[in-house]
Every structure is written in structure tokens, then in C-alpha cells.
Amino acid sequence: MKLPDSIRDQLKTPLGILLPEIKANKENIKKFLPENSFIITVGDRTTEKMIDFGMIPSLQIIDGKEKRKKREPTKLSNATELQIDNPAAEITSQSIDVIKKSFSMKPPVRILVNGEEDLLVLPVCIYAPENSIVMYGQPNEGLVITKITTEIRNKAQRLLDLME
């Protein structure tokens, strides 16, 4: 599925709470994490930040880039690693299948994306377990923290349905 230009602006609206970059520290992030939540990160910098805080995400989706510049992902010895191809401005059916599969695996699971991971927030929000918190970076603004609810699932599904 390809991202049509007509919905690009809708995707710039955070799906959850936007924590400004200067406030995205461990103490502030923890305020948004209910007990025993299933933490999901999409993006290299967000994933690295959580690992640095000692809060290992159950599912991590990274592409080895930040703002299109190559970077070395943080090593994680006990994570199961899966690989997918997902071109920029697209969501492949393989990506959706692997995301669904990852939720039935023992965490932590890391999905390494050959291409771009940004849009994978949508299928993650649709298929994540009930007690999930999804985090991703809003470029040049901060960290988005999204509690998975029926409303969020429906909004993500509506956006996904608009893709061609």
C-alpha cells in the first residue's frame, strides 16, 4: 500500500500525546506508562532513548536511520530479530504479517526494516495487544506516546484504508 499525497498532512497530527523534546526524559515518560504495559517503539532514536533509560521495549521497529542518515542501532543481546522490506511511503503486506506475528513472540522482539519504518505505526496501533503504549518520534518536535484504545485502532485503520 502506498501513501497518497492527500493524507500526508493527516499523518503529521500525533496519534497520542506529544511530549516536547526537552521534556522527553525518563521521569516524564514513566508518567504515561501504566503498570505492566507492553511498550512498542517505532524509530531508531525513540528505541535507543528507551533502552538508555533501562526501559526495554517489548517490540522495537527500526531502520538503522535517523532523518534519513545511517546510524548504528543499539545492540540488544536477548532480542529476537526479524527482518522485513518496507519501502519509503509504503506499508507492505509482509510488514503487517511480521508485526502481527511479533505480538505472539516472547519479548523483546526487534524488527529491522530494510527501507523505512515510519508508517508502520499504523499497523502497530491496529494489531497491538490491549495494554500497549506505542512511542514514536515527531520530527523536530518530540516524542509521541499513544495508549492503544478502540478509538486509536479505528483512527489508524481509517488512515490505512485511505492508502492505495
Rank of each mutant, 00 (worst) to 15 (best):
S95W: 02
I99Q: 02
P107V: 01
I99E: 05
I61H: 05
E117A: 03
E117H: 05
V113S: 03
S77K: 15
I96A: 03
P139Y: 12
S77H: 10
E81A: 10
P107F: 04
V98D: 04
V109Y: 00
L82Y: 11
I99H: 03
L59E: 04
E81F: 15
F103E: 04
R68E: 10
S102F: 01
R110V: 07
K70P: 03
S102V: 01
N131D: 15
P73V: 00
S93I: 09
L76P: 11
I111L: 04
L120G: 05
V134M: 11
E66W: 04
D85C: 10
L122A: 10
Q83G: 06
G142A: 11
T92V: 04
S104Y: 06
L112D: 02
K100R: 12
L82H: 10
R110G: 00
I126E: 12
A89I: 05
I84V: 13
K75M: 08
I91S: 06
E130F: 04
D63T: 00
I111P: 05
I91M: 03
S102A: 14
C125I: 02
I111K: 02
P87H: 06
S104A: 05
A88I: 08
I62N: 01
P123D: 13
A89N: 14
M105A: 01
K106T: 07
E141Q: 15
A128E: 11
K65W: 04
S104T: 07
S104I: 00
I84A: 07
F103W: 06
S93G: 01
E141L: 15
M105D: 05
I99C: 05
L143E: 12
Q60N: 10
I91R: 03
L59Y: 03
M135A: 13
S104D: 11
L119E: 08
N140Q: 15
I84G: 07
G115C: 03
K100Q: 11
R110P: 00
A89G: 06
L82D: 12
Y127W: 12
S104P: 00
L59K: 02
E90G: 00
S58N: 14
E72I: 13
P57T: 01
R110M: 05
